[in-house]
């Protein structure tokens, strides 16, 4: 995924940084035996072209000040040697260092003493009591187990969040909701239609995916790729179907609770959005 921070400065028309060191330092300031530099790994500064020497030093100063490990000790010694004899580079080094010192001198701000209590009360109010919402849900419904098995952990996180929202509801709302999902539960566990729908739908999906896959194989050029893709989807659906067959009641119960919690989360979210828009 592309980060929200990625950017191309050139595209945004930002100016390239230009070294503020146009002068030529005295010949005595040249350090080292190499006639050129290929990178920061070099251990000595260039001898020829005094202008480029200062430019290279100024390029390396941030790494030197940061101590980020990009400048080898031998090179650091050479740079400090140069700074000792080149007043312009020394001034540049001093300015960069003092800029950072100004930043680092900003005070660490303090929060009121009871702030964590305030945060915790908001956590409780916004998300509901953890034990009441998340844990009870996880321990009793088996939803998370099923989700982890069939759809991976991300689904489990979503379930946990919906459960936490459920925990936010007041007693009356919970009672209504409990009635709704209890009815769903009874329906899926007891009615023949409910049981058949659970397994039957999965079977129908598997059959359809596999049929489309076979038909796709006859298409020119993309046929094989499409056929393989549909076969893979069909395999996944088979796995889900088998999970239902193996887990049976747990799967049905998990699904019913998920539907109910999803609905509850949606209702709570919609109501909040409405009340927020009214406030604005």
């Amino acid at each position: 995924m592309e980060s929200r921070f990625n950017h191309n400065p050139e595209e945004e028309g930002e100016k390239q940084w230009v070294s503020p060191l146009p002068h030529n330092p005295p010949a005595s300031s040249h350090i080292g035996n190499h006639s050129g530099l290929r990178g920061k790994e070099e251990t000595a500064l260039p001898q020829k072209n005094t202008g480029s020497l200062c430019v290279r030093v100024s390029e390396m100063l941030p790494s030197l000040i940061e101590g980020d490990g990009e400048i080898r000790p031998e090179m650091a010694t050479a740079i400090y040697g140069h700074l000792a004899v080149c007043p312009t580079c020394a001034k540049e080094f001093d300015t960069q260092q003092r800029t950072l010192m100004l930043l680092e001198q900003l005070p660490l701000l303090e929060l009121p003493k009871d702030f964590s209590g305030l945060v915790m009360s908001r956590v409780q109010a916004e998300m509901g009591n953890y034990k009441d919402g998340v844990l009870q849900h996880r321990q009793t419904s088996g939803t998370e187990t099923l989700s982890r098995l069939a759809l991976g952990e991300e689904t489990a996180v979503v379930n946990t969040q919906t459960a936490a929202l459920y925990g936010h509801l007041d007693t009356k709302q919970r009672a209504v909701l409990t009635g709704v999902f209890a009815a769903l539960l009874v329906f899926f566990l007891s009615s023949a239609w409910g049981k058949a729908a659970m397994g039957g739908n999965a079977e129908a999906i598997v059959a359809w995916l596999s049929g489309v896959g076979e038909a796709a194989r006859s298409l020119p050029i993309i046929g094989q790729t499409m056929g393989s893709a549909f076969s893979s989807l069909s395999q996944m659906a088979t796995t889900i179907e088998e999970s239902y067959a193996t887990l049976g009641a747990t799967a049905a119960q998990g699904l019913a609770i998920d539907v109910a919690l999803g609905a509850a989360a949606f209702v709570v979210y919609t109501r909040r959005q409405k009340s927020r828009s009214k406030m604005h």
Binding site: L108, L109, E110, L111, F115, S116, G117, V119, M120, V123, Q124, N129, Y130, K131, L135
Partner: peptide
Amino acid sequence: LGGNSTAYNGLVTKYQRQVYN
């Protein structure tokens, strides 16, 4: 995650200052 909200309070107390700054 095991239901001990005091533990989360501890994490809040420990890191709230850095997050605030």
